[in-house]
Design a protein around this nucleic acid. Structure first.
Lengths: 157, 157
DNA sequence: CTAGACATAGTCAAACAAGGTCAAAAACAG
DNA sequence: CTGTTTTTGACCTTGTTTGACTATGTCTAG
């Protein structure tokens, strides 16, 4: 199995590790020197091939003893509805728009009552800035991140 | 679980002691020589890992017979814990402080993993503004509202 | 008593050790 | 060619370690 480029090789390498142990913890510079490339190449591979849409979750830490960890996650069955809403978060969102999405998620039993309330807390204009346009952007950002979390199935934790 | 840096090892060591006895009293220089590091490293560990947001309280004395004592903050129940954190939201909050509290709530099984993730989504600097001071205030606002929701739920049980 | 020596702990900034971002350059696919 | 993906490197941000300097208690000689 020949790889046409380095990113594919690194991807395969990481997936092999994942296969073997369920999760990977690497040091960026180690992998970089293993593949004889610059460290930021590892970020590129992770950003293009280990996103939540690919079924992975990544966490990292800088500084002494830093690391990058990759987990494989299971994605929910009700993915469609969430994906649709995710699209909408690529533009600024009014409070009303955000609230109606959250309400729908609750009605469709994708989130619990408490989860809905927690989400709404972060959508409330009163808790944000005094500038509507800024708030609309913040809301989109936060909601996008929250919706991504919803995609992950419970059994992963 | 191997530790790649000294601070993590010292943290674990102290938490083991805490677990065993409920509180710890150490001499800074003793621990430092045990881990073969400078004494101020102990302060670093305490300041980054044993704050009130992590649920600890520290007191110390200098001079001959000096010591550092670490207590786990006593909480009667979930409601008590939430109320303690609620007080802390009456001032602006750094991202790290907010994250510590949410982590503590999860460790104490007051919130689920998903609830924690949803809350963390709203605490992330990347999702807010470019002004740190504004973000700290927004975080406090949102977290206060979220904690109130948790309180309502607990009180209805 | 009190001054000074000694014993601790605290602060702060510099040095170091990761990982992250971004955009230009290079390679590739159609 | 042209648009997209990959590769590279300069620069940025965050977290840790170290050490010089400071602050605060205690103890002892006078």
């Amino acid at each position: 199995m020949k790889h046409k480029n380095m990113s594919d090789s690194i991807e395969e390498y990481l997936k092999d590790l994942l296969e073997a142990q369920g999760n990977v913890e690497i040091q960026r510079s180690e992998i970089a020197s293993l593949f004889d490339c610059v460290p930021s190449q590892i970020n590129y591979v992770i950003n293009t091939r280990f996103t939540i849409h690919h079924g992975y979750q990544v966490e990292s830490k800088r500084g002494g003893g830093g690391y990058i960890r990759i987990y494989e996650i299971q994605v929910r069955d009700e993915i469609d509805q969430i994906e649709k809403f995710l699209e909408l978060t690529h533009h600024p969102l009014s409070q009303a728009a955000a609230e109606s999405m959250i309400e729908t998620l609750y009605q469709n039993e994708i989130i619990t009552f408490l989860e809905g309330k927690l989400m709404l807390s972060a959508m409330d204009d009163h808790h944000l800035t005094t500038r509507e346009s800024v708030n609309n952007q913040i809301r989109a950002n936060i909601l996008r991140s929250m919706l991504s979390q919803l995609l992950i199935k419970e059994e992963n934790q």
